[in-house]
Design a protein around this nucleic acid. Structure first.
Length: 606
DNA sequence: ATAGGGTTAG
């Protein structure tokens, strides 16, 4: 704003602004509008409107003043202080619309708690909330980490008679309950919603994704197709594609891709990116790459997803090449991109490249290393056997190590069978999280492997006492669009007898060419999974047998596992790929293993 | 005069 154009009122108000706005409180208190920091976008225009209303006297008109407050409050979080001081200045009676406008602004801003405090003031001052108030305030409630406030708001809206008739409020409630983990309540409220349009369905799909119930998210999508007139839109598809990606459900994912084409939905940048991610997370890296090349406008996410996809599939060189290409294209890598590149290095054992990137992050890419980046590097060093170096890195970093970071080192200690560091790391983890199942299982396995049976008993009884259970190994495999899930030692599947017969057959044929199980007699055995279930019944083996039983010869068998694949399963998969002449693709917690002709794409480095 | 749903990560 040029100084000459300033009106008396805008200057007067700009002063007022410095009192209430945190942003400007550090700049020159006398002439904030001439301070070198640029005004938030649109502020000058709003100040002009404000000045005009003051000159004409229209500021006394409730509707005009309300509109101005609303415009300012929603013009960006930085202007909220301005809106609030105008609100405080208003002489004419306030109204619900003005309160709503401010609450909306704060609900979407940096400090949603302030929306709640305004809402309370509103009620305390005798203003009645209306149907618009509740979506705003519930938005704020989903963003703070305290369900009690939202529960209270729900109570208030019931008292005011707003429950079960307004679809906007109903959807806001679905989001709120989903945000605090009450998916059942969210589902019930959805069921009671009077009209379910595409937004209501999208909210429910997102609710299931939020609690990792991906199959249910897809089930909801199917219900939406079959039982409602709501037409899926781009946001629906983003959710469904994401669910397929998490599940590794390739057939479903392909179907969704075809659906997008068939319904002539535009393949937007977001949807394209989501589909690339889906293909990459289903192990179809060629399809991912093809789609990536097809896409005209890519953003940082598109690049990051593709780089991360190569990393996940163990294609480190492709990831690094694409990283260079991205920079040549003038796209600045962000924190997520670097996570992808570092994990590519870690999966391929490219220690020097990875360390170089890590050292350059701050200065060259202007990305401050986060605990996630440290996680990649600990993984990189640890997997390469440089456990001391990884430990030293954790010790000298300025961030406080979390359980995940120690966990990365623990995994490396297990792989390299390092008891000393491993024991120390497990104990560090238990300090941060005394209930951590992984650390307990590690210790118990270490003590068992080294014959310290009294200590084994101690850990075991402690776990039993505190009801600490490691999540069981689980593998899923998709057949004709249905995802079948197997737990370790599972006998609940209708085909269970056949599956176990097939497992015997696999063992017999593997034995013929010299395979011996990688445990029992092995002196040092500290796998990720509990020893309660025999490794011959690991979930990925059950899924493999199920796949062999139910698919034609030559069909690729795709398995997704929730934990890391164990050594014995890995070698069985290799053997099956040779003996049964099948391509087997396993996505474990960490990465892909593509088995073909008796060997694995990870080259036994994982 | 105002409302609800958004893809990436160890």
């Amino acid at each position: 704003m040029r100084p000459r154009k300033k009106t008396f009122f805008s200057i007067a108000f700009a002063r007022n602004l410095t009192v209430s706005s945190r942003q400007n409180s550090k700049s020159n208190p006398k002439f904030p509008s001439s301070s070198p920091t640029p005004s938030p976008p649109g502020l000058n225009h709003l100040k002009r409107d404000h000045a005009k209303l003051l000159r004409s006297g229209e500021i006394l008109d409730t509707i005009a003043a309300g509109k101005l407050i609303s415009d300012i409050a929603f013009s960006g979080a930085a202007n909220l202080g301005y809106a609030r001081s105008l609100f405080a200045w208003i002489q004419s009676p306030l109204n619900t619309f003005m309160w709503n406008s401010l609450i909306r602004g704060y609900a979407h801003g940096d400090d949603p708690r302030e929306a709640i405090s305004l809402y309370r003031q509103m009620l305390a001052n005798g203003y009645l909330p209306n149907n618009y108030t509740f979506p705003f305030i519930l938005k704020a409630c989903t963003r703070i980490n305290d369900p009690r406030v939202g529960l209270g708001v729900h109570g208030t809206l019931i008292r005011h008679g707003f429950e079960d008739f307004d679809p906007f409020i109903q959807t806001s409630l679905v989001n709120f309950y989903a945000s605090c983990g009450s998916i059942e309540v969210a589902q019930k409220l959805f069921d009671r919603s009077p009209q379910r349009d595409v937004t209501s369905w999208n909210a429910l799909i997102k609710a299931y994704i939020g609690c990792c119930r991906f199959s249910d998210a897809i089930r909801v999508f199917r219900l939406m197709q079959d039982r409602s007139n709501a037409r899926a839109d781009e946001i629906t598809m983003l959710g469904v594609v994401s669910a397929c990606a998490h599940l590794g459900a390739l057939d479903m994912g392909k179907w969704v891709h075809a659906y997008v084409d068939r319904s002539r939905m535009r393949l937007t940048r977001n949807l394209g990116t989501a589909l690339i991610n889906m293909y990459a997370r289903c192990g179809e890296i060629e399809s991912a790459s093809f789609l990536f090349r097809e896409m005209k406008d890519k953003d940082i996410r598109t690049w990051s997803v593709m780089i991360g996809g190569f990393a996940l599939n163990g294609l480190a060189n492709e990831a690094l090449d694409l990283f260079s290409e991205m920079q040549s294209a003038g796209v600045k890598p962000d924190s997520v991109t670097l996570t992808g590149v570092l994990s590519a290095c870690s999966h391929a054992g490219l220690v020097q490249e990875g360390m170089k990137l890590f050292d350059e992050m701050r200065d060259l890419f202007l990305v401050e290393p986060t605990i996630e980046h440290y996680g990649c590097v600990v993984d990189l060093l640890g997997r390469a056997g440089e456990l001391e170096e990884a430990l030293a890195l954790i010790k000298r970093m300025s961030l406080k190590p979390d359980v995940m970071l120690w966990g990365a080192l623990l995994v490396a200690c297990r792989v390299h069978k390092n008891v000393e560091i491993g024991e120390m790391v497990a104990k560090e983890m238990l300090v941060l999280d005394s209930q951590n199942a992984g650390a307990h299982v590690f210790l118990s396995n270490v003590y068992a492997a080294t014959g310290k049976w009294d200590l084994v008993e101690q850990v075991r009884s402690l776990m039993k006492e505190q009801k600490i259970r490691k999540p069981p190994g689980s593998s899923s495999i998709e057949l004709d669009g249905v995802v079948h899930e197997f737990l370790s030692g599972d006998t609940s599947h209708p085909q269970s007898d056949q599956i176990y017969r097939m497992l015997n057959e696999i063992r017999r044929r593997a034995g013929l060419i010299g395979h011996r199980p990688a445990t029992g007699g092995v002196p040092f055995d500290i796998d990720e999974e509990d020893k309660e279930v025999c490794i011959t019944q690991h979930s990925e083996k059950l899924a493999l047998a199920f796949g062999l039983l139910n698919t034609e010869e030559g069909t690729v068998i795709r398995i997704v596992k929730n934990l890391r694949i164990c050594e014995d399963c890995h070698s069985v998969m290799q053997l099956v790929s040779e003996v049964f002449d099948r391509i087997v693709v396993v996505r474990d917690r960490n990465r892909f293993h593509h088995f073909k002709n008796g060997s694995c794409s990870c080259r036994n480095y994982w």
